[in-house]
């Protein structure tokens, strides 16, 4: 879908992206990273708004800079508020549809469709300057969808939206992805990214620190022992036999009902755990991998040496 080849972008001396090579596959990909990591730069390059300083970027096999053929297949939802504030939501979407070269008839149908899809029907007649942040996000998404793109690039589409808006937008993106639209979405709220997709592109300081399926990324971090959390009433009774297990490198009892097991090979521990629990006759309320979340990975991979 998007291929990056030794791609670099600098703004004067300031780094945007530095020597990035990757292939972003079909489906939905979550783009995460701290502020200033280069997320928006990557999106700008993919949508042909920025010219690479070095290297190449290909979208559907073609360069995106100054290439209307490719750009007409991309829908872009920018981070900021690039509105004509006095236009109504409908006029705004319709105008951008016109810019995409849609005919009058196609436009009329499509504009109403995307407004409906983003739940803006009731507000589409009002001027954008009176919109709340959540409505602005919705109308930006509508605008990105209006020309039926094959690739959606969404820069922080949830920011400022209320929980209802987040829920509905998330639902919309998932159903679009199911319909075969490719999506590249960035967000600071890692829970939400995780709920949308397992495919992650994590960047920091303009370089890729992790790319791929969440679980395989976690497995690739060999030097980090995995953590398994077990909730039960008498954690010490389970800790004692676990200490004898070969692969367990650390045991931590926190509170009166929680045991944290550290191990480089969680599979081995998972295999032995039911036996131990049954042998001791314990009642376990929860077993979970404590650090397989995107949040934990993000912490490991973007820690700055302070």
């Amino acid at each position: 879908m998007i291929e990056l080849q030794s791609l670099s972008k600098w703004y004067g001396e300031v780094i945007g992206l530095n020597n990035v090579t990757a292939t972003i596959g079909d489906g939905m990909t979550g783009l995460v990273g701290p502020n200033g990591a280069g997320k928006s730069t990557l999106m700008g390059l993919a949508t042909g708004q920025l010219l690479p300083s070095m290297g190449r970027i290909r979208v559907f096999g073609q360069r995106s800079w100054n290439n209307p053929a490719v750009l007409s297949t991309i829908g872009y939802c920018p981070e900021g508020d690039p509105f004509w504030m006095n236009l109504s939501g409908r006029q705004f979407v319709s105008f951008l549809a016109k810019c995409s070269g849609m005919s009058f008839r196609a436009r009329r149908k499509s504009v109403e469709d995307v407004i409906e899809l983003t739940g803006m029907t009731a507000h589409a007649g009002r001027a954008i300057k009176g919109y709340s942040k959540g409505m602005r996000q919705r109308i930006k998404v509508a605008q990105a969808l209006v020309h039926g793109p094959k690739l959606l690039i969404l820069d922080e589409p949830f920011t400022g939206a209320d929980p209802v808006g987040r829920h509905e937008l998330g639902h919309l993106f998932r159903s679009l992805a199911d319909q075969g639209v490719n999506i590249l979405i960035s967000s600071h709220v890692l829970h939400e990214v995780e709920a949308l997709t397992n495919e992650i592109l994590m960047i920091d300081h303009g370089r890729i620190v992790a790319h791929g399926d969440l679980h395989s990324v976690r497995r690739a971090l060999h030097d980090r022992p995995h953590a398994i959390r077990v909730r039960l009433d008498e954690p010490r009774r389970l800790a004692a036999p676990l200490a004898a297990v070969e692969f367990v490198t650390g045991l931590k009892i926190s509170g009166s009902d929680s045991l944290l097991i550290e191990t480089p090979v969680p599979e081995q521990v998972f295999e032995q755990l039911p036996d131990l629990i049954l042998r001791e006759g314990l009642v376990v309320r929860e077993i979970s991998a404590a650090d397989e979340s995107l949040e934990a990975l993000f912490g490991y991979l973007t820690q700055r040496s302070a």
Binding site: E271, P274, R285, E286, I287, A289
Partner: peptide, 16 residues
């Protein structure tokens, strides 16, 4: 747990 042990697979999570 008993079921998992009998079935011979790996139980890697139990979430209420």
């Amino acid at each position: 747990m008993e079921a998992a042990r009998q079935a011979g697979g790996r139980l890697s999570g139990l979430h209420p």
